[in-house]
Design a protein around this nucleic acid. Sequence first.
DNA 1: TCTATTTGTTGGAGCGCTCTAATGCTGTAG
DNA 2: CTACAGCATTAGAGCGCTCCAACAAATAGA
Lengths: 335, 335
Amino acid sequence: MEDVAARAGVSRALVSLVMRGSPKVSDQRRTAVLKAAEELGYSPHAMARSLASRTSHVLGVMVSDLHNAFFAEVVDGLDSVATEQGFDLIINTGGRSPARERRALQSLLSFRPAGLALLSPVVPTADIGRAADQTSVVLVARSSRLSTVDTVNDDGERGITLAVDHLVSLGHKRIAHLDGGEGTQAAPRRRGYLAAMASHGLTPQVVASEYTDAAGARAVHGLLDDMPSAIISCNDFNAVGAISALEDNGYRVPEDVSVVGYDNTSLAALRHISLTTIDQPRNEFGRLAAEALLQRVRGEREEPVRHLLHPSLVVRSTTAPVATAGPRRHAGGIS
Amino acid sequence: MEDVAARAGVSRALVSLVMRGSPKVSDQRRTAVLKAAEELGYSPHAMARSLASRTSHVLGVMVSDLHNAFFAEVVDGLDSVATEQGFDLIINTGGRSPARERRALQSLLSFRPAGLALLSPVVPTADIGRAADQTSVVLVARSSRLSTVDTVNDDGERGITLAVDHLVSLGHKRIAHLDGGEGTQAAPRRRGYLAAMASHGLTPQVVASEYTDAAGARAVHGLLDDMPSAIISCNDFNAVGAISALEDNGYRVPEDVSVVGYDNTSLAALRHISLTTIDQPRNEFGRLAAEALLQRVRGEREEPVRHLLHPSLVVRSTTAPVATAGPRRHAGGIS
DNA sequence: TCTATTTGTTGGAGCGCTCTAATGCTGTAG
DNA sequence: CTACAGCATTAGAGCGCTCCAACAAATAGA
């Protein structure tokens, strides 16, 4: 900076003003400074800057699991809003392990970010509360009653209701739900299923399962004796596992059994899979999370905000009208 | 820090020593300082620290595309080595857009990281060279002749050779390659295919395609008149698209046509897909990249290092011995 | 006993920047 | 011709820390 100032024949303070895009600089000096900076390959030192200004233009993002493409779109949303408002993102990952996640949190916090977005974190609430004492925090895809944090979630009850309504409109009456167990958001989805079935006067059937394709396949094996005409999985992975097990056992999808997933991952869109599923507005999650953070940064809001977004139904090729003769078994299928 | 020093009845410098775990501190003072820090909820300010020490314990990572799970495992590898050596990771993403990637690079650089890992970057070489002037840089899944950067890649020629050899050992003679076009690493894969076919005395058939499932399906449509007995796709997505198109057109996989992918993504492992594919040691990519960076940071090495890792064949259910009667068409298949 | 050496501790400078208050400068009004 | 805005510019203090050289106290060697 010293060098740039010398080269442009001005003071350090003036360089600082130019780098921050202050309007109180004559065009002549501004271009001189910019030219000198360019020639010297100078770019401001973000840390020194935030140390001196006691403010940060950085938003921290903790992605619980980088392997899950779900979060990539949330990050896209965060990124577009942040960039728009002149904020930088720094991302860290927790790998779904509370210990590693805690380290990631600590690392992020040590940069003294203006705000912190936690995407589906698995750390205990106490850790989140502690982080919230140091900076603004928004939780995505995890709810919390902490009065100091904002949350952005989808309305899981409503999402499952869409799935049930869709299947009922196709004539299905025996609709099973492969449950997400302890997983995040499994509870509202289960609740939504039970409520929707009840509202149609149908008998619910909840099958214990998990958020993996192997678990979906196992759950289907447990249903072989008495197969429902439709299955609503707790997520897309689970649905793909279920479809695979169905086909292995001679059931055709969707002719014999309809299957609905949840999340609308890129997997679901593959033409080989073409899964009917429930879409969450992931990009919107990111945008709202960033907005929530920035509102707090700008001091526009103190009270926590709770966003509950509307999911939507994406119909593809794994759902069809219920077979008139009811489900039947075939020889063959895919090997 | 001032407060902690006062509370513990020592100087600021002593607090600094304790926080850095220096051995040159008496146990008595150490515990006193730790106690005071605990009571005051003090934790050192990472930025001030690195500003003062002119050293950074941060490695920057630029992930070109967060949507691709390939990179998640590379990051895992980076993370484990970095953590082991007391370094923190900050991640940023470029979304496969050169402009956004450039911004990400700039942002990362403004934190003055000790090193920078670029995962499959799409920015021009010149930008990479400029970054390399400021800090150590390692390129993953992108080669470069820049003498100032290290690189970590897989041996694509060898990978495809594994695929060809596997198919030949199953009796296949007509093996087509769905080409990745301009995509990264498409060239070595194509070269490997041509060389391997030649070494077996077979006639190569390169079909123009791309790294997407739709492109894989399109390429298969172009082959319908005269279907080979085996297909090697440029990556897993392409292979899944190809399989889908094959089945739509009455070909069974693997009975009529064998298909091999590349990358061994989580997609390939799904039981519904169960794709024979070529695995790249992604975690190892990350580990080696981190090692390369840290070697430079510690001043152990000046000359660039070029890692070329061995891919391996993962046999699943989409390859089988060539049908004795040659490929034939069926009615039906999956709808 | 007195000087070396080691060990533990400290003040103060400085990392690269921002911010406040003060400076010099023009231009307009009295 | 002085007075006083109003503006662009700058010196200097300070952000929270590390590092160095200097120092006091304890230990060792003569």
